[in-house]
Design a protein around this nucleic acid. Structure first.
Length: 247
DNA sequence: GCGACAG
DNA sequence: ATCTTGTCGC
């Protein structure tokens, strides 16, 4: 991956996001792992995200629900006003399940439906400032989890917020909201265990694309103003479940 | 070989 | 992820 902490190297005017599923989308585990190895170098760490609550665009949350019996998948994308966290846009997409759940390959199960939902949500002139994903970004065996993959495909800044530490290790963060501890793969900090509410189990934040780890945590904390999970995730989770039930 | 394993 | 009863608390 590349660092863009140097302002001179920062991306220029926001490019148009792409919501196209790339040609040759993997259908086997071997192809999927190879695709991750091929794309991992495209992840950008750092950038110039506006302060949480200070941006002009929306903060978008995405999530996916499944009915494996029927083979149906439903994705939701919800846009929030970064100030008051009010919902300003919603979109869903329903499709067929095309990939099993394999730890480390979650992106191949979730991304096709997520791209459809984002394409429906997006309105020209109203680009998301950032997309918050339910899962990991760089905290991944090959440093290319769902959030990083979605970021590289769309070009949008992304953040991963997961509910479990996957295979990584961490010490318990302090008991107060805002306290955190490094999420470690050996000696490497791949994310942070972040306490978003006093005395409540932490969430696990990692860089997706075009954000720094510190900014990713600041956003996660801002969005988790009232509950353990970011409001983006809560809204998207509720919406994709509704979409699945109605499909 | 065995256990662990985002959603 | 999804399956599920009761239970504690505002």
């Amino acid at each position: 991956m590349t660092s863009t902490s140097d302002p001179a190297a920062a991306p220029g005017p926001a490019a148009e996001p792409s919501y196209e599923l790339p040609p040759g989308w993997p259908t086997t585990e071997a192809e999927a792992a190879a695709a991750q190895e091929r794309l991992r170098g495209s992840v950008l760490v750092g950038g110039d995200l506006p302060a949480p609550g200070g941006g002009t665009g929306a903060v978008v949350g995405v999530d996916v629900a499944y009915d494996d019996e029927r083979g149906v998948v439903a994705a939701a994308a919800v846009a929030l006003d970064p100030r008051g966290l009010a919902v300003v846009g919603e979109a869903t997409a329903v499709g067929r399940v095309t990939f099993p759940y394999v730890p480390g390959l979650l992106a191949f199960r979730e991304i096709p439906a997520v791209l459809d939902a984002l394409a429906t949500l997006d309105r020209p002139g109203h680009r998301p400032d950032v997309v918050v994903c339910d899962g990991y970004g760089l905290a991944h065996p090959r440093r290319f989890g769902l959030a990083s993959h979605l970021g590289v495909l769309t070009g949008l800044p992304t953040i991963g917020v997961a509910k479990n530490p996957f295979t990584f290790h961490h010490d318990a963060p302090g008991p107060r909201r805002g306290q955190w501890s490094p999420l470690l793969d050996g000696a490497e900090e791949v994310g942070r265990a972040l306490r978003t509410q006093d005395g409540v189990k932490p969430v696990f934040v990692s860089v997706g694309h075009r954000v720094s780890l510190a900014d990713a945590c600041a956003y996660a904390l801002h969005l988790a103003r009232d509950y353990r999970l970011p409001e983006t995730t809560r809204r998207a989770d509720a919406l994709c479940r509704r979409a699945l039930a109605g499909a």
